[in-house]
């Protein structure tokens, strides 16, 4: 008569150990997130012990180098906002337009060629975009403006904003393409059978159906623009400038972070610590955008009962 083996204890211990090792590895990602949060938070708290919290968010003067240093980050936030706005006004229409072409008009062969080409745009390192913005686009804008009698800075918000927009095109187009393709074909047919033209079908039925996904893509794009560093470090200004004129130089949160950390100041000086306060603001905003963006995509998936996109 055959009996079952009794439980092999050694093997079980081994299996459990492997499982715990895997859990340990998985924990690293959590440690990283909290590592980022706490390392930024603690230094930011150090900063706010020295400098006013309220003035940081409402003050308009940023003068870290002076004896009576002031840290009013409003012009920095404004610059970030404006450059992001320029970037999105380039990236959103072009990215969405490209996505619509690829998902609705392109043939299969066109698609297989065009999609990787757009992905090349996504694979270009940002330092390369920065060089392009600083050395080609910014002088071009200055020349064009001069020829029509306008004055533009070599560090104009427009130059870095436009190039940043181009960088974000693939972010918008790739996610939008996915959600537009995922809209059930039956809706298109339903609309066309009512005597709608193709563009009416796209504008009135397909796009509204894909809207949560498109909003999600846009939020992701904004988050990318806010956190983008190299383009603005290389092509935008250092001077906090509260202005609506996009031909002037402006600075951003990321530029100020880099600027205050690549010097030789003492680590616990307010000038250095201000980088962490700015970093904290950036962290909170981008994290919020990401969480909202994920919610939107979930909403879209639930709408069409899709398991994965």
């Amino acid at each position: 008569m055959q009996t079952f083996e009794t439980k092999n204890r050694n093997r079980h211990i081994q299996e459990d150990m492997i499982k715990y090792a895997l859990i340990l590895a998985a924990t690293i990602s959590i440690l990283t997130t909290f590592g980022i949060l706490f390392s930024i938070l603690f230094e930011a708290i150090e900063f706010f012990k020295l400098k006013s919290f309220v003035y940081f968010f409402t003050g308009t003067e940023w003068s870290p180098g002076t004896v009576d240093s002031k840290f009013g980050a409003l012009p920095i936030f404004a610059g970030t906002f404006i450059i992001t706005l320029i970037a999105m006004s380039v990236a959103l229409p072009i990215g969405l337009g490209s996505a619509i072409f690829m998902s609705e008009y392109a043939t299969k062969t066109q698609r297989t060629i065009l999609k990787p080409l757009l992905e090349v745009l996504a694979g270009i390192p940002t330092v390369v975009y920065g060089f392009f913005a600083a050395i080609t686009v910014a002088p071009f804008i200055v020349n064009v403006c001069n020829s029509i009698g306008l004055e533009a800075s070599f560090n104009s918000a427009l130059a870095s904003g436009v190039v940043m927009g181009i960088m974000i095109i693939p972010v918008i187009s790739s996610l939008s393409d996915d959600v537009i393709t995922a809209v059930p074909d039956s809706l298109r047919k339903g609309s066309l059978a009512l005597g709608m033209t193709k563009s009416e079908t796209i504008k009135d039925v397909v796009i509204p159906s894909a809207m949560p996904g498109i909003i999600s893509a846009a939020l992701l794009g904004i988050s990318k623009a806010l956190g983008e560093t190299m383009i603005v470090v290389m092509a935008a200004g250092l001077r906090p400038n509260l202005s609506w004129n996009i031909l002037e130089d402006m600075t951003t949160v990321t530029v100020r972070i880099v600027d205050s950390l690549v010097g030789d100041q003492a680590f616990n000086s307010p000038a250095t610590l201000s980088a962490f306060a700015l970093g904290l603001a950036l962290f909170v905003v981008t994290l919020t955008l990401n969480i909202v963006s994920v919610r939107m995509i979930q909403k879209f998936k639930e709408k069409y009962k899709m398991s994965s996109l």
């Binding site: 997130t33 988050s223 956190g227 560093t229 990321t254 972070i257 980088a275 970093g279 950036l282 963006s293």
Partner: peptide, 9 residues
């Protein structure tokens, strides 16, 4: 989704 510069911090 965290901006790369924050990893630097």
């Amino acid at each position: 989704a965290i901006p790369s510069i924050l990893f630097g911090l």
